[in-house]
Write a protein that binds this DNA or RNA. Structure first.
Lengths: 158, 158
DNA sequence: TCTGAAAATGGACCTTT
DNA sequence: AAAGGTCCATTTTCAGA
């Protein structure tokens, strides 16, 4: 397990989740640390994989993927090798942004972006109709991305 | 609409989605541009909001939020002010990472992270049972985060 | 925490198409 | 005009004392 995170670490994480390009001296003034201390802490947080990675969030519409779709998938049999193959297939599909394996009525939730409905139809053929371990799936078309991101609350209480 | 993106832009976007901390001279050698050209293009992509923002991805388990849950929500009435109020409530909840307003059987899909089931129960009271515009909701507990991110495919064909 | 070297960013200016 | 390249000043990072 990770070394316990103190309040400085939490404040830093809150900041860099919002904006990863704030310079370390500015972070220092915001959280009341020297630049060097900020530098060491961020380095440690990356090394310990508390910070997994840094990324640029691209607006899908701007690059020609204006349509977002959530899909729930039920499979036929939860045989381990079939399951793993399925996970690999989903993970390898560039249009699939997120894939979660879940407990309950459904087995997978996918979040994906596509150019248009035609492309989504093609994908359903490849991923679902073309896979005889898929029992059924349900398509939920996103009308409004109200909130998107992977920000994790880092404060003690809430 | 945005100025058309050329192949350089697409290559740069692919790179910075994977790792936003690659220095611009390294990006330059990878895509065959000078550092200054890379700098100018990234600046433009940010200004045009093709790049929405830069962020650090934090591992939820490392900060005490090991449990991820997907929730589908059906509401009673799609009255515009009620809907907006609901969106604001969901957007303001720090445990909710993503909130999508969708067409079809359900009205919202939420992706959230919590410390444990107790905290999730508390949240359901606040967000769902405590809101009389929520007709019903379904809880999908994530067992495996197979793939997570917001990477958008940036290449022309696929 | 402070200091300084090395690295990275980003603007000025000139050249090419 | 639009975009690339080189050069250089400023800013940022990051390690040693």
């Amino acid at each position: 397990m990770t070394t316990h995170l103190d309040e400085y670490d939490r404040k830093l994480l809150a900041q860099v989740q919002n904006d990863a390009r704030i310079p370390q001296n500015e972070l220092g003034t915001r959280v009341n640390l020297s630049t060097a201390a900020v530098n060491r802490r961020l380095k440690r947080l990356s090394e310990e994989k508390v910070i997994e990675r840094y990324t640029a969030i691209v607006e899908p519409g701007a690059v020609g993927y204006p349509l977002m779709i959530v899909v729930t998938v039920e499979i036929e049999r939860e045989q381990i090798d079939l399951l793993d193959a399925m996970k690999r297939t989903f993970a390898a599909c560039p249009q699939i942004q997120q894939c979660y394996y879940i407990a309950g009525e459904w087995d997978f939730v996918l979040v994906l972006v596509v150019r248009n409905m035609d492309q989504y139809n093609d994908l359903t053929r490849q991923l679902f109709f073309g896979n005889n371990n898929v029992k059924r799936f349900k398509t939920l078309v996103v009308m409004d991305r109200v909130k998107a991101g992977h920000n994790v609350p880092v404060h003690i209480d809430p």
